[in-house]
Design a protein around this nucleic acid. Structure first.
Lengths: 131, 131
DNA sequence: CTGTATCCGAGTGGATACTG
DNA sequence: CAGTATCCACTCGGATACAG
């Protein structure tokens, strides 16, 4: 029981390497390196939120992508989904202990974008000018 | 000179918000939330590398995606590209000061994937079982 | 309110071939 | 060595309609 000792040994031995496309961490990284994942995990930093709250906070997200991304994150054990069988139904999403360990990293990426967007824009302008 | 005070005020005033799809930080976040960006910035953590080195280290990356991603990162001011006009030509890619500030975040995401891949796999197994 | 289902246009990215 | 160019299968994701 517990987690598989085989893979854990592989991690400790440095054999789990996202540089290796055949390592399971690669497809995981691919799922995490996603705009909606970053924004949704960041949005849940202050506590659980309802589906409609997430839709409002994360601007521009379609219903399809919101549901799809939440499903994948739930499946990966990053968020929990709790249904309150009221009428109408109410669904709350929150970070799991695992999701809680990832959230700060994603939040940092989101903040980096906001803080450094100008420097990037300036670099882009320079790049264009030098063409 | 320096960076534009206008946008800086916007950032400080909380008007630069990646949750807002019309904020310039959103498309930036979208470019950063990319598998290859995470892996390439991580690969450059120990110093500049040649094109062929990057192709070797980052397994599974196609020539097209490697070049394309490096171009975008160069354009965004994250990496520098230095050409040595030898025969054959030699090209070194390195982190810019701006890229240096982002690299640790990306490296952390890559490491998170490697360290927690098992917990995620376990969560996925549980999710499947509960269907 | 919280989804699911389907359509479909646009963009992504791998494979391949070729170049300075 | 370090690209560029092209083709094209595939996926992504928005829009829309409908449902529990």
């Amino acid at each position: 029981m517990a987690t598989k000792p085989d893979a854990r040994r592989r991690v400790e031995a440095g054999q789990c390497d996202a540089y290796d496309p055949s390592c399971p961490s690669r497809p995981l990284l691919d799922r995490l390196a996603d705009k909606w994942v970053v924004l949704l995990l960041s949005a849940l930093a202050d506590g659980p939120l309802r589906y409609s709250d997430l839709a409002r906070i994360v601007g521009g997200v379609s219903q399809k992508m919101l549901t799809q991304t939440l499903r994948v994150m739930e499946r990966d054990g990053l968020v929990s989904r709790r249904v309150t069988p009221s009428v109408p139904v109410r669904v709350d999403y929150g970070l799991t202990p695992l999701g809680w360990t990832l959230m700060p990293l994603m939040y940092a990426v989101k903040e980096w974008s906001e803080v450094h967007v100008e420097e990037v824009e300036a670099a882009r302008a320079t790049y264009e000018a030098d063409l």
